[in-house]
Amino acid sequence: MEKKTPDSHVIVVTSGKGGVGKTTAVANLATGLAKLGYSVVVMDLDIGLKKLDLILGLENRVIYDIVQVADGECTLKQALVKDKRFPALYMLPAAQTRNKDDITTEQVKTICEELKQDFDFIFVDCPAGIEQGFRNSIAAANKAIVVTNPEVSAVRDADRIIGMLESCDFKDIKLLINRLRPEMVRSGDMLSIEDLMEHLCIDLLGVVPEDRNVVISTNRGEPIILDEHSSASKAFNNIVQRLLGNDVELMTLEEDSFWRKLKRNLGFKN
């Protein structure tokens, strides 16, 4: 566990609403950063409803969990699960048999401080909701990524979450729009990026298009970012670059027409 940068970024990935892709975003961004050699740890705080281990494909390597670390039943090093693909990526699993109140904000902060010594990036996978789990997740973070889908219910929850983050003095709040379907936006059946930005008025971190390969990769426990041909992978790679402070343009989201596919297969740039 060699740190590349002196500072550590503690990034909470949150949304309010469930099922918008928080855990998928955490798994992919962490994998993307680890691929570039940064030391990364993902902390699953969705205690009682853990999913991150599945999406990373590490479910059979989990021995200890974060509640046991907090209670002093094991050391932090013992509980960290090393990724099977990238040696720079670690996961701190959630307990499945406990619940959100079994850990306090103070304990999360202590664990985070300890992790900061070894890791460049600490991702916190926040549970849905605005209760104790949310408060635990934001306790130690200095940055926040709010994940939302282009639909009114997710946007309302995102707005609520942004308000709560702002009242907790978060300065760095970025928006990640997930599961956008360009063809539906074009036909006026889905909120556009502009609509979302106008309503939520925070900085945009990136847009991930709807991609059926995500389901496949989740079931396999292989983050989609490793499948370089998928559009979601490109989007996540761009977001990784932006997290590193590089300026990457938003990719143009076009549905794949027959001609475009043909052109691409023949080696033309589109």
């Binding site: 309302r156 929850d157 707005d159 609520r160 942004i162 308000g163 709560m164 702002e166 009242s167 309503h199 008025c201």
Partner: peptide
């Protein structure tokens, strides 16, 4: 500032907001 969803404010006089009041605030 802008008031976001779930935030609420009360004034004993008039209320002047330099910003937006979002849906369900």
């Amino acid at each position: 500032r802008t008031l976001r969803s779930g935030q609420n404010l009360h004034s004993e006089g008039s209320m002047i907001i330099w910003g937006d009041v979002h849906e369900s605030a």
